[in-house]
Simulated scan of single mutants.
Amino acid sequence: MKIQLALDRMGIADAIELTRKVADSIDWIEVGTSLIKEFGIVSVKELKQAFPEKTVVADIKTIDNARYEFEMCFEAGADLATVMGAAPLVTIDACMEVARRYKKKVMIDLLNTSSEQKRVLMKYKDAILCDHVSKDEQEEAGSQNRGTTSGQPFVEPAIQMAAAGGITLESIGTLRATMNPAVAIIGSAITKAENPAEAAAKFKQVCHQEEELV
């Protein structure tokens, strides 16, 4: 299970500094939606330049204008970009086509998608599907841990899955046992920890251990 570090609500320099502290324990770097909205696509470019050996995810959350936005992300150095599962299928098709052309990857965010929409999205075998509990669900609904507002996580064995939203050291074991996603997207449990490097190392210990130890 790879660890994707979600960087949000901070400046680019702070994001780079924090990532340096935890780089040995994380696999992918997510340039969060708020970072891209506040500082633009340069945030993706600077994170990739700082960590060229890491997979960089541009969490652009595309829902329209797919070709322009995905080309912009990949030209800036992103290895993967995100599109909303609730977007029109023509938009997702365009994201997939651009990713193939650039030899990059697509993550489809399942936030606010219906069961029927999820079934339709199964056709995108080359994409990563992200089961996502939103920030507002966590904060406004009073949920502290991933999964407490959305019930059982969406799981599709034939598809590579990611999980995002409120993942903590207390919940990561349960998440692995119930869903075992290929990618665990972790934000404030690392970025807001008193000692981010120590917190990231603990997540790595859980996420990278052998399956029989879970």
Rank of each mutant, 00 (worst) to 15 (best):
N112Q: 12
T113P: 07
T113K: 08
T113I: 07
T113G: 07
S114G: 07
S114A: 05
E116Y: 12
E116W: 09
K118P: 08
K118Q: 15
K118T: 12
R119M: 12
V120Y: 08
V120D: 12
V120C: 09
L121G: 06
L121R: 05
M122F: 02
M122K: 15
K123E: 14
K125C: 07
K125W: 07
D126L: 08
D126H: 11
A127H: 11
L129G: 07
L129E: 08
C130W: 08
C130M: 14
D131V: 12
D131L: 04
D131I: 06
H132N: 15
V133N: 09
D136T: 14
D136I: 13
E137D: 15
Q138G: 13
Q138D: 03
E139C: 07
A141P: 00
A141I: 07
G142K: 01
N145C: 10
R146W: 12
R146V: 10
R146N: 13
T148E: 15
T149D: 11
T149R: 13
S150I: 15
S150C: 13
Q152K: 14
Q152I: 10
P153G: 09
P153H: 09
P153T: 08
P153A: 09
P153V: 09
V155I: 14
V155M: 09
V155Y: 14
E156D: 11
P157R: 04
A158K: 13
I159R: 15
I159E: 06
I159Q: 14
Q160I: 05
A162W: 02
A163V: 09
A164I: 06
G165F: 09
G166M: 04
I167E: 04
T168L: 09
T168G: 09
T168A: 08
L169D: 03
L169E: 05
L169Y: 01
L169G: 10
E170L: 02
E170I: 00
E170Q: 07
S171K: 01
G173F: 07
T174S: 10
T174W: 11
T174N: 09
T174I: 07
A177G: 01
A177Q: 14
T178S: 11
T178C: 10
M179D: 03
P181R: 05
P181N: 04
V183L: 06
A184P: 03
A184D: 04
I186G: 02
I186L: 01
I186P: 00
I186E: 02
G187Q: 05
S188W: 02
S188M: 04
I190Y: 05
T191Q: 04
K192D: 12
K192L: 10
K192W: 02
A193N: 05
A193E: 03
A193H: 03
E194P: 04
E194A: 14
N195H: 10
P196R: 00
P196A: 01
A197R: 05
A199C: 02
A199Q: 00
A199G: 01
A200M: 01
A200G: 02
A201S: 12
A201V: 03
K202D: 03
F203H: 00
Q205Y: 07
Q205E: 14
V206Q: 03
C207K: 00
C207L: 15
Q209H: 06
E211V: 11
